Simulated assay, not measured.
Amino acid sequence: MKDQLAFYAFFFLLYACFAALSSAQDFDFFYFVQQWPGSYCDTKRSCCYPTTGKPAADFGIHGLWPNYNSGSYPSDCDPDSPYDASQIKDLIRRMQEKWPTLACPSSEGHHFWEHEWEKHGTCSESILDQHSYFQAALNLKNKINLLQILKDRGIEPDGGNYEVSDIKDAIKDATGFTPWIQCNVDEGRNSQLYQVYMCVNTSATNFIECPVFPKGRSCPQEIEFPVF
């Protein structure tokens, strides 16, 4: 009987360890995505400035998205963990500055952040609670000044056209890691610099080389960097 109890105790401990390990490995890395507001607004659908006013002419955070090495990603992982603005009240001012909404109708930003937390953030809860998730994204934003990196290489948001390879090289030379560039099109169907993806480790503390890049249409060789 004692041997049987010992066996079950060992089995339960082994299962608990395996479950904990599996929980800690719910995803393989994050995409940290920043978007250029001029490109978001310079489209057929246009944009609306947040109720706090026009954002700065700078790359803004779009999201911090858990991903798998296979290229797929988890989403909407915990419906029992809704967005709660009271948990991040000390971050709101910085989020309005660094993570502004441009969606219509104009808003303060909570709907945007709610979407990001509930779709993406809940899939990292084994590592980051709600406050830690938003704090981590803000910290990553502080680590990489995309606009200054590009300006230092003569790539300005002046409505001019630039080689995608030059944009990638500028970011890689400054950070040590290869970015993925996403384009969209303006009303005249011209391709423009829209979003920059960088990869981050599972603790959301450091940039890493991307295990895989997003699937989707690549940008043409030359793209516009619109004014905002």
Rank of each mutant, 00 (worst) to 15 (best):
S39L: 08
L5N: 10
R45F: 11
V185A: 12
C104Q: 00
D76C: 14
E222N: 10
R189P: 09
N190A: 13
S191P: 08
L147C: 09
V212W: 04
D80V: 06
A20H: 12
L147E: 13
T51W: 07
Y68A: 12
A6H: 07
S218E: 13
G216A: 01
V185W: 12
W180Y: 15
P220V: 00
C104S: 03
L147K: 14
D28R: 05
K119M: 06
T43L: 04
T101M: 04
T101K: 00
N190T: 14
S81T: 04
H115M: 03
F12H: 09
D28Q: 07
K168I: 13
N69F: 14
S107Q: 13
C199Q: 06
T101F: 03
R45C: 08
M95A: 00
S107Y: 07
A24K: 12
L14D: 05
W113Q: 00
N184Y: 03
G109V: 05
Y73F: 15
K2Y: 10
P214R: 00
P74V: 09
R93A: 15
S75D: 15
L14S: 13
A24N: 11
S126K: 07
T178V: 09
I61K: 00
M198N: 15
T205W: 00
I167H: 03
V185Y: 15
S132L: 12
S39V: 03
D152T: 03
T51M: 09
R217L: 10
A19Y: 06
P105R: 08
D169T: 14
Q148Y: 11
G216H: 06
F7H: 11
D26C: 06
I144F: 07
D28V: 05
Y194Q: 00
Q34Y: 01
P220Q: 02
E116N: 02
F228T: 08
N145K: 05
Y194R: 02
K54L: 01
F27A: 01
Y83C: 02
A9T: 10
N184C: 01
V227A: 07
V200Y: 01
W117S: 03
K141T: 11
P74H: 00
W180D: 14
A170Q: 00
C48D: 06
D26E: 14
D80M: 06
T122E: 03
G188P: 02
A204Q: 06
Q192I: 06
H111P: 07
P211T: 02
L21Q: 11
S126A: 15
K119N: 10
F134P: 04
C199D: 05
K151T: 14
P66Q: 03
Q87V: 10
F30W: 00
S124C: 08
L146I: 13
S106Y: 08
E187P: 06
Y83D: 01
E114T: 15
G121C: 02
P179Y: 05
T205P: 01
D26N: 10
H120Y: 01
F207I: 01
D84G: 04
N184G: 07
I127E: 09
D42T: 06
I223W: 05
L140M: 02
C17I: 14
N145L: 02
Y194I: 02
Q148G: 11
A24H: 14
C104E: 04
F7E: 12
A6F: 12
W36E: 05
D166W: 08
L140A: 02
Y8A: 11
S126W: 07
S165L: 08
